[in-house]
Design a protein around this nucleic acid. Sequence first.
DNA 1: CTCGGTATAAACAACG
DNA 2: GCGTTGTTTATACCGA
Length: 285
Amino acid sequence: MDANTETLALPPSALHSPRIACEALAASSSLPIRPLSPPSPCPVPASSPLSPLTPSYSIPFSPASFPPSAQDTRPAPTSADPPPPPKVHCPGLAAPSDQDDLTCLSWLHQRGDLLTLLPLPRTTPLPQLTHQDSSPSPYLPSSPSKPPYSFSSLIFMAIEDSPEKRLPVKGIYDWIVSNFPYYRAAPGGWRNSVRHNLSLSKSFRRIHREKGQKIGKGSLWCVCPEYRPALLEVLRKTHHCHNPSNSFYSSPLLLEGGDCGPAVVCDTVEISGQFLPFAVKHSQI
DNA sequence: CTCGGTATAAACAACG
DNA sequence: GCGTTGTTTATACCGA
């Protein structure tokens, strides 16, 4: 079509289904970690000290220094938790480690809008972050707040979280909905925005499926390698902006939970040679 | 104030 | 015909 597209022969497995993965993860007590290429040295020191106020946020994210013992606790929200600010404000990357700062997304976590995704060592079985019944978490909000991530970042995360590093539009929708329940209830306009971003952004590239690989409609989308560092930087800044006490590489991403339940399974994804924590699925027990 | 990035909406064509 | 996908245009907002 144009220079911005390529044709690849893809196996059926290229169609990554978050739901399928979710079910697979939920069916296993020792949750499988998707194989990743060997880690490369993390250029950013993963040595942020554990914060006594937000222990589960401050888990150093490093395959070497990650403490498994700190994974299985999440602060229980209380009714005394402060309400969220009317608008998320970014204090800047040089913001102090002020856990009480309303600009920190920890308040969202505390009120249940965001569930902490605990990064896990790839060699250690995931902890039992499961609830004992299928009832929704009592502190899950009825209307989750909008994630701070831009559509580009959401698309980026979705694609990077797929095994083949490419997804159809539908797969991107599904990933976003699975990981950010806000969009589950949001009006359909966000899908238009996703497609708009895919088309307009040079960061994403359309991959034509071959005739024999036509499963479903449309093409697959991938991240242009040359734009991955920029996307990663945006993601890092966004995360740091809303979680200023931790470096991006030493703390988990904060993603929203939803009606899949609070049991969140974590994974890591290698982006530009760095391992980032990712929520891959919500375990549905 | 300008500019770039982003979000949102809408229209339209192509396709299954 | 309908829904989805992909593209394009327009508008508005916000921060640098």
